[in-house]
Amino acid sequence: MIVDRQGRRFRNLRISLTSACNYACTYCVPDGKRLVAAQDELSADAMIQAVAYLIEAAGIERLRITGGEPLVSPKLEALLRGVSQLGLDDISLTSNGQLLTRKLPLLLETGIRRLNISLDTLDPEAFRRIARGGDLFSVLEGLDQARAAGLKIKLNMVPLRGQNLDQVLPLLDYCLERGFELRFIELMRMGHLARAGQNFQQQFVGLPELLALIGERYEYAQADAPVDATALRYKIAGRGYFGVIANESVPFCRSCSRLRLSSTGWLHGCLSSSNRHYVGDLLDKPRHQALPALQGLLVKALGDKQELAFAGGTTIMKIIGG
Rank of each mutant, 00 (worst) to 15 (best):
H192F: 13
C175Y: 13
M190K: 00
L151M: 14
C175V: 13
K154L: 05
L172F: 11
P170M: 05
P159R: 07
V158E: 04
F184V: 04
R161M: 10
A194M: 08
L182D: 11
L155Y: 09
K152M: 04
M190R: 10
Q163P: 03
L187H: 12
E186A: 05
R161P: 01
N156K: 11
G162Q: 05
C175K: 10
G162K: 06
R178E: 14
M157S: 07
A194C: 00
G150C: 04
C175W: 13
P159C: 11
L151D: 08
I185P: 01
I153C: 11
M188P: 01
L169Y: 05
V158H: 05
F180E: 02
M157G: 00
L155D: 00
E177R: 15
R178C: 14
L193D: 09
I185W: 02
N156V: 12
M188S: 08
K152I: 14
V158D: 02
R178N: 14
V168Y: 09
L182V: 09
V168T: 04
I185N: 05
F180D: 07
L176G: 13
K152V: 14
D173S: 13
N156L: 14
E177Q: 15
Q163M: 15
H192W: 12
L182W: 11
D173C: 06
L193Q: 00
Q167P: 07
N164Q: 07
L193I: 08
L193E: 06
